[in-house]
Design a protein around this nucleic acid. Structure first.
Length: 599
DNA sequence: ACCCGCTGTCATCAA
DNA sequence: GATTGATGACAGCGG
């Protein structure tokens, strides 16, 4: 197999080399290096090139092998054209043959361990069964033909094989019974087994844990599902299975947030080590995560409170959350269905009713100005949410039923947090705040201070924020703890009413503005629709006019060809053509019609 | 001084 | 009946 120039070079004598030397010395002025004439150098170059070619060839074979093994896990869905995981574990024969029936732009980097064995197998098959291409089955076992995997010749064969028996009855094996035997031989090769076994394990593993809550027939979007794999495969060339799985894992963090709530509590799914890994990776504290999830989704006050009380959850946990965690909380809250409290309202167009969120119906409300500051200062928003959780859940964290001490503690905390929140808001506002925001804040402060001044004047031992934001039960309990006179009670009720109405008015105005915007958009679309219909009407009118003209000319043409017994033509002014219900056409004299009218 | 937009508040209704 | 949310109307404030 030595190249011709190599064989020729062998007989180059020393004399020739000397001649080359002389020539080289002559050509050296022309810039040619000696390696150009050096036989040894050229030989080395050629060997290097040969090695590269061989490596490339091996690599291609391995790509095909891995592609086949991976595609063996998948089954072509004839309806969608996608590859879906096989419903049941597939025998090795089928998994090995199926990939040859499909063509996808799939390839994987070489795994050098199995290169020679598969190469030999292919060689054996190519020698034993010269493949003849048929019209419908473009099965190509020759390595040189398989190599261009993206070739359109390797079209998809519409065969859904479920078992080796049915497989033998389907297209390819039925036509190639010897081929099936050869494949059995091939699959029995010890060098090939590890590869195929690995792939089949992957196939079983990926189909063994269907995602919970995923409707039948729907492609689940979980991280370990082959449908995702198939999509990735078909779009990426040279992705080996391992890398491919890594790729899927890499995309998991985006999916975990949505899928985690459903998946984390499923025993089967939890058995998956990868799922556990993800849990540990993204939710180091499952208890905390679970509790926050329930907090976010549980709208009932007492249940949430009791849950919180039964769980080792402390405000410190919330304060220890990283910014990302806090933001996750924020996002989770923002996704609450129809939570129209003042807190979540700035993410939901229809957010309105304050107080249906975390704390039953007593969440901490923030005015629009507060929300604006949150928007402008994510850090403060983050701390605000932490504070909110702290305020709301601290009492029940300590005692299942709020006692006086817990209530007092909550008062102190709420006051402290609110004061700090206000101070932070003012301090953190800084030069970034617009004059408008500053103005709003100043007015809000003025408003609050007005109520606070009234409260101070009547010596009400409660903060305005508590009066407004406490749930009704806690508020009543708080009032029962402090013995207030009638004037104080009235003022407290007024403050609470005003505070709640203020938030309601803000939500109402926000909603109204959104309605206006929506109606404007609807108006624009209706105007466009009107324009379209008008132009269509003009077009139809033109068409109708044209058809009428054609009909008129046809009418006159027919009349001009009508003759009476004497061969005279009928006058269109005296006669008219009319069609009866049965389709026959009569020539009706107009004179009669005129008489009828005159009568 | 007037206008306009924003915001808080009140009154009222409905759930 | 009490509570709360929604909303129209009004007033005050500031640009």
């Amino acid at each position: 197999m030595l190249p011709v120039d190599f064989c020729a070079s062998v007989i180059i004598s020393e004399q020739d080399m000397n001649l080359i030397d002389i020539l080289w010395k002559q050509d050296i002025d022309l810039g040619a290096s000696r390696e150009v004439f050096d036989y040894n150098h050229r030989q080395k170059e050629h060997e290097l090139q040969r090695q590269l070619e061989l490596q490339e060839e091996k690599r291609l074979h391995l790509l095909q092998e891995q592609e086949k093994a991976l595609l063996a896990q998948l089954q072509l869905d004839e309806e969608t054209g996608e590859y879906v995981p096989r419903p049941a574990p597939v025998p090795a024969l089928q998994s090995a043959i199926m990939p040859l029936e499909v063509s996808q732009d799939v390839g994987f980097p070489a795994d050098s361990s199995d290169a020679m064995s598969f190469d030999e197998c292919l060689q054996l098959l190519a020698e034993t069964f010269p493949v003849e291409e048929t019209e419908n089955t473009s099965v190509s076992l020759n390595a040189s033909e398989v190599a261009p995997m993206a070739s359109p010749e390797l079209s998809v064969v519409p065969s859904t094989t479920q078992s080796p028996g049915s497989l033998s009855g389907s297209s390819m094996p039925a036509m190639y019974p010897e081929l099936e035997e050869a494949w059995m031989e091939l699959l029995s090769l010890p060098e090939l087994q590890p590869c195929l076994n690995i792939k089949m394990e992957d196939a079983v593993e990926t189909t063994a844990y269907p995602l919970p809550n995923s409707p039948a027939g729907q492609q689940p979007k979980g991280p370990f599902y082959p449908p995702n794999c198939s999509k990735v495969e078909t779009n990426n060339i040279n992705v080996c299975p391992a890398e491919f799985m890594n790729t899927v894992e890499g995309s998991v963090p985006r999916m975990v947030q949505s899928d985690h709530l459903n998946q984390a509590h499923n025993p089967a799914f939890g058995a998956d080590f990868a799922a556990k890994n993800f849990d540990e990776m993204f939710y180091p504290n499952p208890i905390l995560e679970e509790s926050t999830g329930q907090r976010g989704l549980d709208g009932s006050n007492s249940d949430a409170m009791s849950d919180m009380a039964s769980q080792p959850f402390t405000p410190a946990d919330l304060y220890s959350l990283s910014p990302g965690d806090a933001l996750d909380q924020h996002e989770l809250m923002a996704e609450l269905p129809d939570s129209d409290s003042g807190i979540s309202s700035h993410t939901s167009p229809n957010a309105s009713s304050p107080g249906k969120s975390l704390y039953g119906d007593g969440s901490f409300h923030h005015s629009d100005s507060d929300m604006d500051e949150m928007d402008q200062n994510p850090g403060s928003a983050e701390t605000d949410f932490s504070e909110m959780f702290t305020i709301n859940f601290q009492p029940d964290d300590l005692q299942p039923t709020p006692s006086e001490s817990a209530l007092q503690r909550s008062e102190q905390q709420m006051e402290g947090k609110l004061e700090r929140h206000e101070m932070d808001s003012v301090e953190e506002c800084g030069p970034r705040c617009s004059p408008f925001t500053k103005d709003k804040k100043r007015r809000t402060d003025a408003r609050l201070s007005r109520d606070e001044q009234r409260a101070k004047a009547l010596k009400i031992p409660l903060s305005v924020s508590m009066i407004i934001n406490l749930p009704v039960d806690d508020f009543k309990e708080l009032l029962s703890k402090h013995h207030l006179n009638d004037a104080q009670m009235a003022l407290v009720q007024d403050i609470r009413r005003r505070g709640k109405n203020k938030v309601a008015a803000q939500n109402c105005r926000k909603r109204k503005m959104e309605n206006i915007v929506g109606l404007e958009g609807e108006l624009d679309s209706l105007k466009e629709e009107k324009e379209r219909l008008l132009s269509e009407k003009v077009q139809r009118a033109a068409q109708l006019k044209q058809m009428k003209q054609q009909l008129s000319s046809l009418y006159l043409e027919v009349f001009s060809k009508l003759r009476d017994d004497k061969g005279n033509s009928y006058s269109p002014s005296e006669y008219s053509l009319q069609q009866s219900t049965n389709g026959s056409i009569f020539l009706v004299p107009r004179v009669k019609k005129t008489f009828a009218k005159s009568d």
